[in-house]
Nucleic acid binder design. Sequence first.
DNA 1: CACTAGATAGAAAGCGCTTGCTGTCACGCT
DNA 2: AGCGTGACAGCAAGCGCTTTCTATCTAGTG
Lengths: 347, 347
Amino acid sequence: MTVTLADVAARAQVSPATVSRVLNGNYPVAASTRERVLKAVDELDYVLNGPASALAAATSDLVGILVNDIADPFFGIMASAIQNEIGGPGGRAGGERLAVVCNTGGSPERELTYLTLLQRQRAAAVVLTGGAIENPAHLNAVGHKLRKLAEAGTRVVLCGRPPTPEAIAITFDNRGGGQLLTEHLIGLGHRRLGYIAGPEERTTTRHRLEGHRAALAAAGIEDDARRTVYGRYDRLSGYEATLELLRRDPTLTAVVAANDTVALGACAALRDSGLRIPDDVSVAGFDDLPFSIDAVPALTTVRLPLTEAGARAGRIAMGREEAPHGGIATVRGELMVRGSTGAPRAE
Amino acid sequence: MTVTLADVAARAQVSPATVSRVLNGNYPVAASTRERVLKAVDELDYVLNGPASALAAATSDLVGILVNDIADPFFGIMASAIQNEIGGPGGRAGGERLAVVCNTGGSPERELTYLTLLQRQRAAAVVLTGGAIENPAHLNAVGHKLRKLAEAGTRVVLCGRPPTPEAIAITFDNRGGGQLLTEHLIGLGHRRLGYIAGPEERTTTRHRLEGHRAALAAAGIEDDARRTVYGRYDRLSGYEATLELLRRDPTLTAVVAANDTVALGACAALRDSGLRIPDDVSVAGFDDLPFSIDAVPALTTVRLPLTEAGARAGRIAMGREEAPHGGIATVRGELMVRGSTGAPRAE
DNA sequence: CACTAGATAGAAAGCGCTTGCTGTCACGCT
DNA sequence: AGCGTGACAGCAAGCGCTTTCTATCTAGTG
């Protein structure tokens, strides 16, 4: 029914071995023979059987990219950059690899299961993006899996994720970025800052918050726990958290959000509460996603070089760039001061 | 080196066949035996060899999702919805399938290569999302591939893509949406409307533009070709196109954009040109992506039920929902009138 | 001109799993 | 007591490809 290597071989009057060699091109085959084979392949519309090939060769051309939320451009941009370097069809790289992105939805189980599935497929490489979940049991399980994958020859790279002993990592300096942002706000004269954090058990959340607190501490500002609200990394969360923050302290002069999307929600909540940005309340985001500049006023935020980091991770995953020294590269964010932050209103 | 089925069998003192059956759970195995096997699997940390399994069973659990641009939330949202239904680990569905998204970047070659790669992997299903490229040769090649895939037992579903004879399709009524938008603008009194289209050879571009023109024609407004500019589906394109439109006719009172992202760029260009929205110029987008409501003023646009459509496509791909009658379901967009459109300034 | 090295092609042994078919028991029925 | 009948378990034949090793042939070489 389906065309096999043997069919092609028969048609081209050569042995299956020869066809295989023509297709893989790593063994001398006379030009005339090659041509005959290629012709047969074409005529028969033959397509290699991936599983069979992977089984026999004990390798596969699958590369997995794990993301927390595929609907979030933060991940989309990174995934796109990674995939570009992985090669994928027509990518910058040569070999044809199937770069696939797997959406964990931020769920530990899904993350683990995808890792197993990738292991099962004998993936050539795996790139994990974004913050990790800080649960000892889960961390352990993931570490174990990564080790197994590495042992099996799968290259494992982390991108925008805190380093672990098991893999090469391109890490974002979320802590430094958070600090930059809050320092900026404090420099403008703010003293009562609300903070909208992400999900509590994420490393990204913790690091950004730590940076924020470090800046507060450095300025001798008391860190009132009531000024921090945890939520999700989405717009609605930002909206609700802002309302809550305002309820707890209507005299806030600035709101720092977990990321740009959350910041957008915060802006909406402030506007709906009749407050002007930045005259009444300043707002800051994080990531500098494309739409941030289109907010009105444009969002002050920390730009993360998502594309560059992704590209680098992709190249390392393909073995086309050597790993950074010590296996860890830390990428800093750049403070982008725009219209959404300003001096607090005089009291 | 790596643990195989046979190792597990030896350890559990059963035959490989039994282990296989325990793992696949589609054959009666005594509880005590099952337990013994499971224990061995656990102790040995055994992971099934995907390729081998796929080869022997002649099926795979891979499901491909093709998107034009993974960094664009339009696709991210659909992909997320599809993947959710596909099951993926922990998804709503039962079986563990590897739902993978492939980023074509809008390139015909990449689209084709991914399709081949998926065919090579004997994918269980393939979902193609977003507009197609209107190039006869390419259309033909894709059609051919889809037919082959279907013949091989791969379920093929289109989502947000024009129907073809080869597949089941959930299609967006881009034409109707475009018409709605322009009718709305005309209803407000606009007569000189600029149109920023997407890439010329995309079906989405053409359909939305046709809707726009149909509305103009219905209102007896001459369709000046100089009022249409083609570009890409990104922000910068919207910015530049708007400047160009303004250059060609500074008296424009409205700009209709190919999608929300482009609309954002258009807004930026208008603002930078010292024009107010909607007082001087109205702006309309398309898709109603999450950030559209956060633009200031909020974007008037056509909401496309991306999540619902994706979910449905996913279910159909999994065979958990029957195909729509005739194999085609058309989904309409809903006009969302918001602040970015208003009556034109009096002349 | 005999001989060897280099270039190609083929034979065949798996890769690790699934599954149709063939046992082997232990029951429960007549 | 004899036997049909499930319920399990194992055998063994592949699935379609890669690759090692071997065979063959041609072209140099002294």
